[in-house]
């Protein structure tokens, strides 16, 4: 157990400690179901008023010339209502294909396309997953931008543990 935790810590900490660095580890659980499709996932940051200040990532079925995977994006209900429906998709550097069950580590540098400069203050990391012929789940982690720290929260169905690490 300790070994696993240590590994997780190392994988996130492996990113170079640049100014305004933010790393997120998302666990997509393995599910035993008759019909499995990888989940659509959206990661974004909201300010204290609930406004979306950064769309970090959104994973969905991007297929060119075939059935358009954007059809199921509204199933990420909260993300769709807060910002998804107003975006021109796919968003460069944000949109990407769906990912398999397992741990996925994403790193963002402040001032990049996905993570614009944020004023110090209170924010919330939102992670939403929705699966075709499956459920939907939203995990949120409140955090303070400007202070180093690591926080985790866990989903119970569509998402495993989500860990946020900040290095100001």
């Amino acid at each position: 157990m300790r070994f696993t935790l240590c590994l997780v810590g190392t994988s996130i900490a492996a990113s170079p400690a640049l100014a305004g660095d933010l790393a997120v580890k998302v666990d997509i659980p393995q599910l035993r179901v008759a019909e499995y499709h990888r989940p659509y996932v959206a990661l974004w940051i909201e300010d204290a008023k609930g406004n979306t200040v950064a769309n970090l990532a959104n994973w969905y079925q991007i297929r060119r010339g075939r059935e358009d995977g954007t059809k199921w994006l509204p199933d990420l209900r909260t993300w769709w209502r807060h910002s998804g429906r107003s975006l021109k998709l796919p968003v460069d550097g944000v949109s990407g294909p769906t990912r398999a069950p397992g741990s996925h580590v994403l790193r963002f540098t402040e001032g990049s396309r996905a993570l614009p400069k944020l004023a110090p203050g209170n924010y919330t990391l939102m992670v939403e997953a929705a699966r075709e012929v499956g459920g939907r789940e939203l995990v949120s982690i409140p955090f303070r931008w400007g202070a180093a720290g690591s926080r985790s929260a866990s989903g119970s169905s569509e998402l495993g543990t989500v860990t946020l690490q900040i290095k100001p």
Binding site: D68, T70, K71, P74, R85
Partner: peptide, 8 residues
Amino acid sequence: TVLSGDHE
């Protein structure tokens, strides 16, 4: 009632 994409 809530849809996405270019054509639906």
